[in-house]
Design a protein around this nucleic acid. Structure first.
Lengths: 159, 159
DNA sequence: GGTGACTTACTCGGATACGGCGTGTCCGAGTACTGCAGG
DNA sequence: CCTGCAGTACTCGGACACGCCGTATCCGAGTAAGTCACC
């Protein structure tokens, strides 16, 4: 099991936007340059964030990405699910109903125990991420870092 | 993020072994047949379980796989980590130290907040799986299922 | 001077190649039983 | 009848192809500002 690196990029980008004043807009070039990321590839992930309603995008000059909601209302889970998808990491294929000792479907009234345990773990993981917000992360950064981020965002603000 | 299907197979196989009397041995052919799985591929995962010390393998006739410890002492996490590896799903690449606004390493005394949040979620996931054991699952199965499993294991017990 | 359209430069969005890991399979090394020959 | 040995059949273990999704990139569609001609 491995998370896409796009998750790290996306969360950091969201936090960066959250450090500026509300409504701060930054182009993908600006975002990629801040962290030294490949611009074209980062764009792919930003697009996913737009589709999921985490970011809002505007085209043309003065365009770019901004948070679609107040940073305090965007959970880390929102960002992760935007990139990785909302599907659970574990998918039960009901192998108990296959093979020579297949259990007839009518006997499978209870959900597969293995499935339930894996889903419980998945829920715990999501619940942990749901409890942390982008705004919380941005607010917890050191004043020096926040100051530098705000300066960069202001400099590269689309004219 | 997606878990290998080998996880499902491995957990079910461990549970199957746990349904028989302690020390029950089953060959990969027996295990694969029970669930209708491709024997050659299942073998790959069983090998991982042996490497991780979850199962114990013996060669030759009367050989096969058996649980390396009492089923109550084998957690679901043990099986999952055997197949998926113990590495965390999220790996922090310290992108805050890269790009035009790179934070000097000497200022990074605190661990990256994003990393900490992701690791917390990962820990919650693992903790959830660590609390459930193979033996617990086997004991919770319905008597009919357990009886059928025991019968199959006895029938296919290596002569 | 004001206004309108045009040019332009910048933005995002979808479509398109490449590569690594999970998926799937095979054959070889090792072992315990089985049958037989010899004592 | 007992014993030793060779053959055999079954087991696991490592090495070898294939396919899909993450990785990485590009070019086209759209937009708003700036500019210039015209009124």
């Amino acid at each position: 099991m491995k998370l896409s690196q796009g998750v790290e990029w996306s969360v950091h980008c969201a936090v960066l936007l959250a450090q500026g004043p509300p409504g701060t807009v930054a182009s993908r070039r600006t975002l990629a340059g801040f962290y030294g990321l490949p611009e074209a590839y980062l764009a792919k992930h930003l697009k996913s964030l737009v589709r999921s309603g985490v970011l809002h995008a505007t085209s043309g000059p003065r365009g770019g990405f901004r948070l679609a909601r107040p940073a305090a209302e965007i959970t880390v889970l929102d960002v992760v699910e935007a990139v990785e998808g909302e599907a659970s990491a574990f998918v039960c294929t009901e192998i108990r109903q296959r093979g020579v000792c297949a259990i007839p479907a009518e006997q499978c009234v209870r959900r597969c125990t293995v499935d339930r345990i894996m889903q419980d773990a998945d829920d715990a993981w999501r619940e942990s991420l749901r409890g942390r917000t982008i705004g919380e992360i941005a607010r917890g950064l050191s004043p020096e870092v926040r100051e530098r981020s705000r300066g960069y965002l202001a400099e590269n603000r689309p004219a």
